[in-house]
Simulated scan of single mutants.
Amino acid sequence: MGALLVLLVAYLFGSIPAGVLVARTYGVDIRKVGSGNIGATNVLRTLGWGPALVVAFFDVFKGGIAVLVARALGLEGWLLGGVAVAAVLGHNYSLFLGFKGGKGVATSFGALLFLDPILALWTFPIGVSVTLLTRYVSAGSMTGGVAALVLSLALGRPLWEVATVFLMAALIFFTHWENLKRLREGTERRFGERVEVR
């Protein structure tokens, strides 16, 4: 029962829509501008670096704090992995936004950072490098998901952790399905492009 409560709290914490809340302070509904996504990338295109960094920090933090609290309560193994995934699901399908949300990349990274710091710090530069080389955040995000899974296998991580990373990577690909289509069509927005706020 205690484990289920922790999973629920992780989901609820992940559900807090930082992008929507930060953009609202600027009089903007982030869901109605740019890509309509609530994550830091759309906030960057719409409102600039300051608000985007606040959103990115909070989205990373809510994935990490879920794992940190679960560990403090003695959860390990499959349950700990479940907490990480629950936080990401909360971000992607927020209770406060009618079960809609973001793409879960920052929250996945935050969960992985506290779950396995070494794996996260090996994965991060790979994703960032692809983003900078291609100027597509979506490409960097999906590459990072694949890299995390491959590295978890290469480093001999336990099955529960590999399964957790697989689920988080799968969620990243699922939420980026439209981005994949736009990448194939050559219509995907590039990193650094601004959108007009009306």
Rank of each mutant, 00 (worst) to 15 (best):
Y93N: 06
L89E: 09
L119E: 12
L79P: 07
K100D: 02
K103Y: 06
D116Q: 13
L95A: 03
P117F: 08
Y93S: 01
V88C: 13
L115E: 10
L121C: 07
F114V: 15
S108D: 05
F96V: 00
S108P: 05
L121G: 10
G82N: 08
G98Q: 03
S94F: 02
A120F: 11
L119K: 03
F114G: 04
I118H: 14
H91P: 12
A86I: 10
A120E: 08
F124E: 10
F109D: 11
S94A: 02
P125F: 05
A86N: 10
V105G: 05
L95C: 07
V105S: 04
I118W: 15
L89I: 05
V128T: 13
V128I: 15
L97W: 00
G110Y: 09
A86V: 12
L80F: 12
L79I: 11
G102A: 01
G110H: 14
L119W: 05
G82T: 11
V88G: 04
G101D: 03
I118E: 11
T123E: 07
L112W: 12
A87N: 06
A87L: 05
G102V: 01
G102L: 00
V85W: 07
A111D: 11
G101E: 00
N92G: 10
L97F: 00
K103S: 02
L112N: 09
D116F: 09
F114S: 05
G127F: 11
A120L: 04
L97Y: 07
V105Q: 09
F109A: 14
L97D: 00
V85P: 14
I126G: 12
F124V: 13
G104A: 05
G98L: 02
L79K: 04
P117S: 07
Y93I: 08
G82K: 15
A87K: 09
V88D: 01
A87E: 04
H91N: 12
A120S: 10
G101C: 00
A86C: 01
S108E: 14
V128G: 09
G104K: 06
K100V: 00
A87S: 15
S108L: 05
K103E: 07
N92T: 03
L112F: 08
V88M: 15
I118T: 13
H91Y: 01
L95N: 06
G90V: 02
V88K: 13
V105C: 02
G102N: 01
L89V: 06
G102T: 03
V105L: 13
H91K: 04
K100E: 00
G127C: 05
G82Q: 12
G101R: 00
L115V: 04
G90H: 04
G101H: 04
I118P: 02
G98A: 07
N92V: 08
G81D: 15
G104C: 02
L97E: 02
V83S: 14
L112Q: 15
G90K: 03
L95F: 14
L80Y: 10
A106I: 02
F109I: 11
L89K: 10
A84K: 14
N92I: 10
L119Q: 05
V83W: 12
K100M: 02
G101M: 01
P125G: 13
S94K: 06
L119I: 10
V88H: 12
G110W: 10
G90W: 04
